[in-house]
């Protein structure tokens, strides 16, 4: 594990401690649980974002891939428990497909990642709005099937176990498999990786596909949490996913970073907002402090090397 994961964990610990000191309910399990659940949504999108950032890419299509998956889930699940497996498969499938197209565009057609994923965001937005007629379609009002909503009930919500599973998956994939080695090799130096036999294009396609899948997973979990799908559900997660990745100590230039750091980064961001909300800081104050906190963290361990 690298040093930056330690920094990210330390920052998360400091923010959580600060919260515990400032507001009474924060240190209790219900308080912490609420933070963890909300942080899990950021954690899912940031998992995908981290995978593409590791090879020096970026995924700007997260908001509407997430939103599309959420709406696919509710319109195919129709609120019925027995339709849930089908709905889940379709929602995740939609996310994976969007990610696959992103990957193919970036790796095979050579479209810059910013352009490809920005375009995909527009395409998914148009498709989502158009097909659902602005979320006015007959099936659009359905609630998420009950088993999905039950993920958020109980002392230890099953949603947190899903996050744990996702964290294990990403960590094992990146640290214990050949594929993971190839990801870091590609991120550190794509040319060197290519010359030593890494299928750089294949790796890139796989990572964008996974990012689409993680965005869809976040959409599914958000629908389970909120009960219904809505338009603009994914909008806050574009910049938040990037912020969580860098606060988590992942280098934006690629090649360095671990998901454990990103988990800490997601916790930090959500805890900051939660603490400020508990302190009844108005929205404008929250936004400004949030930005300044990110800036301070960047100054602490997000700087690039000196030039000379």
């Amino acid at each position: 594990m690298n040093r930056r994961v330690g920094y990210a964990a330390a920052v998360a610990a400091v923010v959580l401690l600060l919260g515990a000191v400032l507001s009474p309910g924060f240190a209790s399990w219900p308080g912490l649980r609420a933070v963890l659940v909300v942080a899990s949504f950021t954690g899912f999108v940031a998992a995908g974002q981290m995978l593409v950032v590791l090879v020096g890419g970026i995924d700007l299509s997260i908001p509407w891939v997430l939103n599309a998956a959420a709406i696919v889930l509710t319109t195919t699940g129709l609120g019925m428990a027995d339709r849930l497996p089908l709905a889940l498969a379709l929602a995740i499938g939609a996310g994976l497909l969007a990610g696959l197209v992103n990957g193919l565009g970036v790796a095979w057609l050579g479209v810059p990642a910013v352009v490809m994923t920005l375009g995909m965001n527009g395409v998914m937005q148009g498709l989502t709005l158009g097909v659902s007629q602005g979320l006015t379609c007959g099936e659009c009002g359905h609630y998420a099937p009950q088993p999905l909503r039950d993920l958020f009930a109980g002392t230890v919500p099953a949603a947190l176990l899903v996050w744990l599973g996702a964290a294990l998956f990403v960590t094992v994939l990146l640290t214990l498999t050949t594929f993971g080695r190839r990801v870091y090799a590609t991120g550190a130096n794509p040319r060197a990786a290519y010359l030593s036999g890494v299928g750089v294009k294949g790796v890139t396609v796989a990572l964008y596909t996974l990012s689409g899948g993680f965005a869809a997973l976040a959409g599914i979990m958000l629908v389970g949490y909120g009960g219904q799908a809505s338009l603009g559900l994914g909008d806050p997660y574009l910049f938040e996913s990037i912020a969580a990745v860098v606060v988590g100590g992942v280098s934006i230039l690629g090649g360095r970073g671990h998901y454990l750091g990103v988990v800490a980064g997601s916790l930090t961001l959500v805890a900051v907002t939660t603490v400020l909300r508990a302190q009844q800081v108005p929205e404008h104050g929250r936004l400004m402090i949030y930005g300044l906190v990110i800036l301070a963290i960047l100054f602490a361990y997000g700087r690039e090397r000196a030039h000379d």
């Binding site: 936004l287 930005g291 300044l292 800036l295 960047l298």
Partner: peptide, 15 residues
């Protein structure tokens, strides 16, 4: 500050 442009401006966007 030698902070990547995308990150710097992401933070100041919020501010």
């Amino acid at each position: 500050g030698r902070i990547a442009p995308i990150l710097t401006t992401l933070a100041t966007l919020s501010v």
